[in-house]
Design a binder for these strands. Structure first.
Length: 493
RNA sequence: GGCGACAUGGCCGAGUGGCUAGGCAGAGGUCUGCAAAACCUUGUACGGCGGUUCGAAUCCGCCUGUCGCCUCCA
């Protein structure tokens, strides 16, 4: 599908729909954030890079987006059913610290790792523990509207009271529960009823008072309460990982719509998973590689470190609704391709248009590039195709420039290209520079001295010496490239 | 068992009822003191079997295989 209008795949309808905001030009977008009890891994990167693209592209189109992404710091239970321990608490007990230290520490590393990937910060990052009153209020509303009931200090959502329950995941309530493997809590009316509020015993670390006694909120209610608080009862986009489609998002819809009497999010966007050897990468499966490990190369499956921008580019080369199969070989291919693309872009951007002879300009070119790029992006954010379009156009453009054929709108083209790269795709153009920043000033100056000596040797045709210098540097990972303009180098990866 | 996806050339990965995806790797070449880089040229694809069609890899059916959700997970 190529179109001048943005179309997004809506999980609710299971098809691509034209994107029409409820209150244009304003767009409200909510994306399920991380549970902060461990480091972010490649799977998180796929999800948050995907929605970063959504955010950036909507802004490019001129929408005024308010982007809300929660931080889950309570209520997410370990293990099966509703009786597991809270994930944050479990980690806090293990490390003998206050749960809030755990949450704070992993919130910090989450943002640090996402910043490195050039993922824009949400406008609002609400914490679940900071919104206990809002959650209690919503639970009370559900009780008042006969969609929830209290039982032994627990409050459950009554799924039978929500006829539309199952509409997102396509589940039939009776079928879904007949094959269930979890032990049903005895105080539930229906096995599929889920907890809104849980009673806390004395040993519990995180607990609050409520109309139903001391306890803590269920996992699903935070997203309903916080999205509604900051985006209103009804808003445009709700995003998250595919694995949260059921039960999390299904429960969110049921709670929110029953509590407010309004329909909830208009478009539901779900990103697919990162796989490793065909298996989902996940914390519980023990096959997750954290972003920190990618950045340092410190993991058994990694032979070397990988730049965050390479990870980002790698992810953008596949569609967000497809699985991305990880291998170091694929990363390597992405890295080489990315560097080539950067160099194509820079060869276009480095031309000083003011010094170009304007008497012999060719036809304008920007419109062609924009059309191809935008129709790819308009088709449910197809970054893979958008990048392919850039490769194709830039190769041709570079060739034209080398033969002094400039399109008449070259200056506008340069501006747009830079914007497309840095603002829409979020890919840094100063790849070379950022690599060189890693070396100390001293190292750079030492290399400069060696390069000086080598070029003197080359002038004197002492190639034995010049090659020795090049080879010795190569052993250290410093790669030299000779050109007519002089010798460039790249530092170890 | 229920629900839902996907199967594309050596690898990654878009897309489409008839027209080059793109990247990486490979091969040949130009350039170069030699490299590297750059540039040029180049190739095999659409899981299997049926059906619809003038024409399908693209639509339909069946089969096989892989994966996700149904339990916390981006």
């Amino acid at each position: 599908m190529s179109s001048q209008d943005l179309h997004v795949y809506n999980t609710l309808s299971r098809k691509k729909e034209r994107f029409e905001p409820i209150h244009a030009p304003h767009v409200g977008m909510y994306v399920c954030g991380p549970t902060v009890y461990g480091d972010a891994h490649l799977g998180h990167a796929k999800s948050y890079v995907a929605f970063d693209i959504v955010l950036r592209y909507l802004r490019y189109l001129g929408y005024k987006v308010r982007y809300v992404q929660n931080i889950t710091d309570v209520g997410h239970l370990v293990g099966d059913g509703d009786d597991g321990e809270d994930k944050i608490s479990a980690k806090a007990r293990l490390e003998q610290v206050d749960p809030m230290q755990i949450a704070e520490s992993y919130t910090y590393t989450y943002f640090r790792d996402m910043d490195a990937l050039n993922v824009l910060r949400p406008d609002i990052s609400p914490r679940a523990t900071g919104h206990i009153p809002e959650q209690i209020q919503m639970i009370q509303d559900l009780i008042d509207r006969n969609h929830a009931y209290e039982s032994n200090g627990n409050v459950y959502f009554d799924v039978k009271s929500a006829p539309e329950y199952g509409k997102l995941s396509g589940r039939n309530l009776d079928e879904a529960t007949s094959g269930t493997r979890i032990e049903t809590a005895s105080d539930k009316r229906h096995p599929a009823d889920f907890a809104l509020w849980k009673r806390a015993d004395d040993g519990h670390l995180m607990k609050w008072s409520s109309p139903w006694g001391v306890g803590y909120p269920g996992w699903h209610i935070e997203c309903s309460a916080m999205s509604t608080k900051y985006l209103g009862n009804e808003f445009d986009i709700h995003g998250g990982g595919l694995e949260n489609q059921f039960p999390h998002h299904e429960c969110e819809i049921a709670q929110s719509e029953c509590a407010t009497g309004h329909s909830f999010a208009k478009y539901w966007l779900h990103n697919n998973m990162v796989t490793l050897d065909g298996q989902k990468m996940g914390k519980s499966l023990g096959n997750a590689i954290t972003l920190e490990e990618f950045y340092t190369g410190n993991h058994a499956l990694l032979n070397r470190a990988w730049k965050p921008q390479v990870i980002r580019f790698f992810l953008l080369q596949s569609h967000y609704r497809s699985t991305t199969d990880f291998s170091e070989k694929a990363l390597e291919a992405a890295e080489t391709g990315y560097q080539k693309l950067i160099s194509l872009v820079n060869s276009v951007l480095s031309v000083d248009f003011k010094s170009v002879d304007t008497s012999s300009l060719e036809a304008p070119a920007l419109e062609h590039i924009k059309i191809d790029f935008e129709s790819a992006m308009n088709d449910d954010f197809n970054t893979a195709q958008a990048i392919a379009a850039l490769f194709e156009h830039l190769k041709k453009l570079k060739k034209d420039i080398q033969s002094y054929h400039y399109p008449s709108d070259f200056d506008a083209l340069q501006k747009w290209l830079q914007q497309a790269f840095e603002n829409i795709l979020g890919l840094p153009l100063s790849n070379e520079a950022s690599i060189q920043q890693d070396a100390s000033e001293l190292a750079k100056e030492l290399i400069d001295i060696l390069l000086d000596l080598r070029s003197k040797a080359r002038l004197q045709k002492d190639f034995q010496l010049s090659d020795t210098i090049r080879d010795r540097l190569h052993e250290l990972g410093v790669v030299l490239e000779d050109s007519h303009q002089g010798t460039r180098y790249t530092l170890p990866k």
